[in-house]
Structure formats: C-alpha cells, structure tokens
Design a protein around this nucleic acid. Structure first.
Length: 471
DNA sequence: ATGTTC
C-alpha cells in the first residue's frame, strides 16, 4: 500500500538527515531524521507516504519532518512534525486533530530522587508498593476521587489547579512545558468530561509506564546535577479517555466536511485539499479550528494533571519506604499542536506546529526520550539551530506491530530474563510484556545518535531501568 | 492510544 514514487526524490542531506524533494502534490520538501542504513531497516513505505501527504497540507511551511522514531499512524505519521502558517489564506493554515493524535498531550516526566540506588533499603518491596499504588491497565480504576467542579478547574487550569488541590508542589510548575497550563475556555464535550471523571491519576495501558531508573552515565554538560547511580523516576502517560474523546469528537466533525473527488479530499468552504481523509483539517482561525484548539488545550491540561496525580502517588509511596527529596526535573508533551514563532528561510513566521510523537526541544530545554523496558532511556537537551521547528524524537519507535510481537515473543520468559538482569517487571498481563518487549522496538541509542547527528539535540544522561510498572 | 466497534 502507498505510492512509492518518493523513492526517486530521496537524497542524503548529511549524517543524520535525508530529504525528499518536493514533487507531485507536495507543497514543501520532507525531511527524515535517518540514514540510508536506518531507512532500510525501518522500511515502512506506508509511513513515508504519510509524510509525503502531510507535506501537501494547506498552509504548510518550512519542511514536513519525520523524527528518527517515525512510524505509521492515524493520517499523520507518528514522529511527525508539521508547521503551518497561521497567516496563510483567509483564516490561516491547517490545524488537524490527526496531527496531534488520539492521546492528546501524551508525554513524559522525569522526577529526580536526591539519593543513590544504595540508599533504597529494599527495591523489590518499593516496586511492589508502587505497583499497588499506581493504577494501570484498561480498567482505569483506582484513580483520584474528584468532583465535577474540581475536574472543571483541572481542565481549565491544569497543574495550577492540582497545586490548589494539594496534589502537586508549586515549584513543579516551573519544570513543566508551558508551566503545565494551556489557555482554554474548556470547550471539552460533556462526554469527554465524563470519561475524565474516573481517569485522573491512572497510567493507562499500551506503552504507558512508571519506571524507576538509575543514572548510568552523565555527560560533562550536566545542567541538572545528576550523578551516576542516582535514582530517578520516569512517568509516561496522557489524557486517557478524556483526550481520546476530544480527538474523536473533532475528527468526526472535520472528516464529515470533506468530499472525495478523484481520490483527493476537498472542502469547498475553506478551499482545502488533503490527500487522506484522516488528515481532516480546519483553518487555525476558523470556528472549527478554534474549537479544536480550545478543547485540545483542555485535554492537555488534564494530561498534565494526570502526570501530577501519578507523581503525587509516587511521592506518597516513596515516603513509606525512604526519606528522600523529589525534584521534578521536567515534563514534556509529545502529542500537541502549539502556536509558536519560528524563523523559516530567514523570515520569522507565526506557525501552528503539530508534534505527534515528537517532543519540543527549545535550546537548553530538557528532552525526555524513554527507550524500552530492557534497554534504557535518555535525557537530552534541545540545541540551538534545531531545524525541525525545535523538535526531537519521543522514543525508540516500534519495530514490530503489537500482534507480531505477541506472536514472536514469550512474555513470561522475557520477564524472567529481565528480572535476572535486575529489572523488576510489574505488568497486568503477559501479553503486554510481549508487546512492549525490547525486541519490539528499534534501538533507542541509534535513534538518539541520529537525532544528535541531525543537530536537533545533545545528550545529557542515559538511564537504565530498575523497576517497571505497566498496564 | 481507547469504557480496544455508539
């Protein structure tokens, strides 16, 4: 599946970058953080077709990007970064829910414990306690009990509301992207709000996790004063059913506004033409575009609050085992669209930047890149001159589909193997261990190497897993 | 990713 004519327009740009020259319906070139060797291993032509499709979106500027961990997604590839000019046309360039994804403001936070691995009296016991206190899996049971009024505050004010409710430290806000609060009038639908009532402080399933890690190595550039053997906690979760419902609501509304003419999807009202119905988009300043942005920001606030609630549980649980300071090092979003200024070909442009499975990486900003449960994770920082609208990869990237992984990998045997290497695994099912196995993912170190070579980031520290709590 | 097909 997928048109492969892009192959004849593919060039090597430098060590970590490939370029697809604009051709056919494309409005701009596409860039891939990759090398010929890496492309050959990640040869999924469907996702490259998706990259070509997004380079064809109305109002796109600069280049359409695929981060080194790109793979096939809903409309947009995961690992995709797309910027549109908000001053393009009458009501601005495209904003598309498919460019953000279903798990709005899915993201990662890293909490540094001011202690070394040797200061934890019993890691097995601590991991067991965390597993008991961190709700995970599909059921969504065991989260924080909140009222409708509290949920409204959370969706409207994000982390700020969590501080007021006593579920977050005030200083946490300084270490969260956008200070953990995006502007919204809370246009989140009633149905989405109802799904949110039961979900605050729950991890979810799939690749979401809470992981105790130890710092394996630190670069000379060490702005966060980390040390080898230090214990940290990484939390990966998003907006749960609330964000999923917001995406569903707006995808439906927008997809209904397009008609197929000769294989191209068109909206006459806006004069928009898209290559795939799943790319359904509205002009940023249209009623529909603003309505999506408003609800998306509300869902993003809920996701920030969810990670705060999980951090609260982490802090409570740690206190039962050890007297230790916890410092939120940073919290990044990897599924969001934001209005930002960027210099494109020498000119400043106000853009709507979609990052779907991609992390913002402003100069000096911490970038959190979890690998897989057996390999390790990275702390990077954004680099001056990042050409990808100040963005980075968000993980290792899938190599095997979930169904392939379940077929090929014995979850129980893998759990034993990881535990023999000192990695405690608490997962609800054996299937989830197979699906999230190291062999189901690309090599995170290779992905990080490409990202650094492409000039997007520089490394700060590498972490190894100690205990993994998963759905 | 997801009350895993309203």
């Amino acid at each position: 599946m997928g048109d492969e004519s892009w192959q004849t327009h593919l060039e090597v740009e430098n060590d970590g970058l490939m370029r697809i020259r604009k051709h056919g319906t494309m409005n701009v070139d596409a860039m891939i953080v990759s090398s010929p060797e890496h492309m050959a291993k990640s040869s999924d032509s469907r996702s490259i077709s998706q990259l070509v499709n997004i380079a064809s979106m109305p109002g796109v500027v600069g280049e359409a990007w695929a981060m080194a961990d790109w793979h096939f997604g809903y409309g947009f590839p995961i690992g995709g970064v797309l910027a549109t000019d908000v001053n393009w046309g009458e009501e601005g360039g495209s904003i598309s829910p498919g460019g953000v994804g279903f798990d709005i403001n899915c993201g990662v936070r890293m909490v540094a414990l001011e202690c070394s691995i040797d200061d934890i009296p019993n890691l097995d016991k601590l991991a067991g306690r965390l597993n008991g206190r961190i709700p995970s899996g599909g059921s969504g049971k065991g989260g924080l009990d909140i009222t409708q009024r509290e949920l409204d505050e959370i969706v409207t004010r994000g982390t700020n509301a969590m501080v007021d409710l006593g579920y977050a430290y005030e200083e946490d806000m300084n270490s969260i992207e956008s200070n953990g609060m995006l502007e919204t009038d809370n246009g989140v639908s009633e149905r989405a709000m109802n799904r949110g009532m039961k979900a605050l402080g729950t991890l979810g399933s799939g690749n979401h996790f809470l992981e105790l890690q130890t710092v394996q190595s630190v670069e000379d550039n060490n702005p966060h004063n980390l040390f080898e053997g230090q214990v940290v906690c990484m939390i990966h979760s998003g907006s749960r059913g609330l964000g999923h419902q917001v995406c569903t609501d707006h995808v439906r509304t927008l997809e209904d506004k397009y008609r197929n003419r000769d294989g191209v999807w068109q909206n006459d009202e806006w004069g928009f033409e898209i290559q795939d119905r799943q790319l359904a988009a509205a002009p940023v300043f249209s009623k529909e575009g603003q309505s999506y942005l408003d609800a998306m920001n509300g869902a993003a606030n809920f996701a920030f609050a969810n990670r705060s609630a999980l951090t609260h549980r982490l802090r409570q649980t740690l206190a039962t085992e050890i007297d230790v300071e916890t410092r939120l090092l940073y919290d990044v979003s990897h599924n969001i669209a934001k209005i930002e200024d960027h210099v494109i070909h020498g000119k400043t442009c106000t853009c709507c930047v979609h990052r779907k499975g991609a992390t913002r990486a402003l100069p000096g900003q911490p970038v959190l890149v979890p690998g897989d449960m057996g390999t390790g994770s990275w702390l990077l920082e954004g680099k001056e001159g990042n050409r990808a609208f100040s963005s980075s990869c968000h993980g290792a990237g899938r190599l095997l589909s979930r169904s392939q992984a379940k077929k090929q990998i014995d979850g129980k045997a893998l759990k034993r193997e990881l535990e023999s290497r000192g990695i405690r695994i608490h997962a609800n099912t054996s299937n989830i261990i197979s699906e999230e196995a190291p062999d189901a993912y690309k090599d995170v170190d290779e992905v990080i190497g490409l990202t650094n070579s492409a000039g997007l980031t520089k490394p700060i520290a590498r972490m190894m897993p100690l205990a993994v709590i998963k759905g």
